[in-house]
Structures are given as structure tokens and as C-alpha cells.
Design a binder for these strands. Structure first.
Lengths: 189, 189
DNA sequence: TCGCTACGCTACGGGAGCGTAGCGAAATGT
DNA sequence: ACATTTCGCTACGCTCCCGTAGCGTAGCGA
């Protein structure tokens, strides 16, 4: 295992990640990565056969940096509120938030990015679904509650605020959202 | 007023709209519009100074085709359900649904498209907000209900289903969503 | 030390797109 | 009927990007 391989590989991926965040998938170019990383374009093409492969790798790195923890404060409501607050905060601060729209756009036409997007999506929803399923098991939620529907009802408004209405996501918003969705007849409890 | 101007203008705009739907903003090119419309590229540039101007015009045409009616069935719940069902249907059928992600992506970096996106967004939310405000006036909803928050709680899950979870939006989903949001303590009633 | 491997560099060839120039032909409306 | 306007066409120049070839150099490992 040559150290040079690993070093240049790391440099390129870091630069690719930066370019991705700055320009999105549409504006991503190998030339730009070469400029920023200081690694020659020929060297890049020795490790990644095509532009798409490099973009995909940079996306996967983004997916990895987005893992979140699953809280366990005792009640479903507290856990859900904790998760939503964290996501709401990240939506306006994390790097990946600026890239997601271009990933969605790419996924609309390219299956490869469809899979990447599915993974990003799964990463967001996983902790929430875990918490909700725990709530069902504990009897805090109705036994026949549809976890997927609940997750959509909880996550959707956050994303809506960020990318559609372009309004801030404060604590009050999250709280009233959680109350609306979890304390309603349809949800049971 | 020369008829030739109007005719070529119409042809170009129609083709531009098609290209926009097929390729999104990122894949939009004047050359492609020229090829599809049969209008020479030079002629296009005589009426639109730049590519961006043509893209923007095509987007505005899209905005215009997206107007919806405001129902009035007597109860807030019925009206909201009607609106959400219609949007849920359009999200998987209408042309503009395939373009929205690229508009959001562009809006993330270009203020011009930010405004276009705001108009699209407003077009979606307008009928819903009207209905909700009517509900507040009638006393069906709490007097201090935040219409913007309610709109986010209702529209967000639909968009979430379409672009994030990629799951179908059926009647059952809309119904349970409406119940969850409108029949909860936070909303009043 | 010495062979192997990865590296950087320069230079390509090909393609696509933007926006422009010049000219002759056709449509317009007066 | 005739001047004006618009059109289509070909051909550019420019920029950016993809992906490749060849060569000399520097670093790695044994």
C-alpha cells in the first residue's frame, strides 16, 4: 500500500467535497477539483475512471458525515422533539443542506443519484423511526400507527420550511408541530 | 406590431418550456431550444439578450400554468382535504413537478431564481392559506392559530413524500394528515 | 541502493454551449 | 409596389469541460 495513493486520494476527496458544497452537483467539475486540491487532473483520473465516480464518492462522504444519534429520554414526545430540533438546526448550518436540492434534482433523472438520495433520506429518517417504533412498543402510540406516515408528517414540515417557505425553524415551530402530530385522535395514544 | 415577432416568440417559448421540463434548469440550453423550435438561434438572441432571460421566461410560463382554484365546501376540513388531494395528484403528474427541484437548487445560489421559486411557492400555498384564514374567521380554528405553521404542517408532508421518501400520496395519507393537524389541541377548534 | 510506481506537467482532441457577424431571402404593412 | 423589418443560415471566436498520451521526476518499499 503506497502512502502516495492514500494521500492524494484524501486530498482529492476533500477538495471534491468542498466543490460539491460550493457548486452543487451541476457545477461540479474535475478541473475545479484539480485546481483546488493541487493534484493533477491526470492523477485524479488514475483513481477515478470518470467524473460521475468522483461526484458519487464525494456524495458518499457527505452521507457519512450526516449520521445522527438516537436519543432516549423516556418519552416519545421528548425524543421526537429532540430529533426535530437537531435536524432543524442542521438544515440551516450543515454543509450537506446546500447540496441536497441538487441531489434531488439529479435523482429525478439518474438512478445512481437516486440511490444516494435514498441513503441520505434513510439517514435522516432512521433515528426518528426508531423512536416512533419504540413509542408503539411502549403503548405511547396507537398500535396501528403508520410510522412512515408519522415520519412524513414530522419531517416534511421541516424540509418545507427550509426549501419552500424559506422561513426559520425555531423551537416554537418544532414544539407546536410535535403536539399537532402526536396528540391527535388519528395517532391514537 | 409584426406578426412574425409574435409567432417566433410563441414558438420559442413553447419549445423552451418543453426543454425545461425535460432537462431542468441545469440541462437547459439555447441550442437545444433552437433545434426543437425550428427557430434559428440568432433569431432567439434577437428577442432574449441572454440564456438566463429565456430560462426565466420559461419558468414564468410554468408559474402561470400552475394556478389553482380555492374551494368552498362549507367546512375547513373538507376544503383542506380537497386542496391537498389536488396537490398530491399534481405532484406526480404535472409538468412543473419535475422542474421544481432544479429551481430550488438554482434558488440556493441565484437570487433571480429565488424570486421565481417564491412565486411558485406562493401559488401553492395561497389557496390553502385562504381556506385556513376563513376557518379562523368562522371560529373553526383557534383565533391565535398560526396560518403559516399550519400550512407548513399540511404541505410539507406532501412534498416530503414526493421528493424525499418517494412514496405515493393516496387518499388515506391525505385524510390522516388532515386529521392529525386540524384536530389537535395545538390547533384549537 | 535500486527498481517500481505514482506523480506533476504540458499538450492534446473532441464536444458542447454562449453569444455574435454578415448576408441573402422572405414576409410585412403602408 | 416598395422600403422596412424580421428571418434563416453558415460560420465564427471564445470558454469550459471531459478524458487521454507522453515524458521526466520524485518518492516509496524491499
Amino acid at each position: 500500500m503506497d502512502k502516495r495513493l492514500q494521500r492524494s486520494r484524501e486530498r482529492v476527496l476533500a477538495a471534491a467535497y468542498d466543490v460539491l458544497v460550493a457548486s452543487g452537483i451541476g457545477g461540479f467539475s474535475v478541473d475545479e477539483v484539480a485546481r483546488r486540491s493541487g493534484v493533477a487532473k491526470t492523477t485524479i483520473y488514475r483513481q477515478w475512471p470518470t467524473r460521475e465516480a468522483l461526484v458519487a464518492d464525494a456524495c458518499w462522504r457527505m452521507v457519512a458525515e450526516q449520521e445522527e444519534e438516537t436519543p432516549d429520554a423516556g418519552s416519545v414526545e421528548a425524543d421526537v422533539e429532540s430529533i426535530l430540533s437537531e435536524i432543524g438546526r442542521l438544515l440551516w448550518t450543515a454543509n450537506w443542506a446546500a447540496v441536497v436540492p441538487s441531489v434531488i434534482d439529479a435523482a429525478e433523472r439518474d438512478p445512481e443519484f437516486g440511490e444516494i438520495h435514498a441513503r441520505i433520506q434513510a439517514g435522516h429518517a432512521a433515528p426518528l423511526k426508531t423512536v416512533l417504533e419504540r413509542g408503539v412498543a411502549r403503548g405511547e402510540l396507537a398500535a396501528d400507527a403508520d410510522v412512515a406516515v408519522l415520519a412524513a408528517a414530522l419531517l416534511g414540515p421541516l424540509f418545507y420550511r427550509r426549501w419552500f417557505a424559506r422561513q426559520p425553524i425555531d423551537e416554537a415551530f418544532v414544539q407546536s408541530l410535535v403536539r399537532q402530530v402526536l396528540r391527535s385522535p388519528g395517532t391514537g395514544r
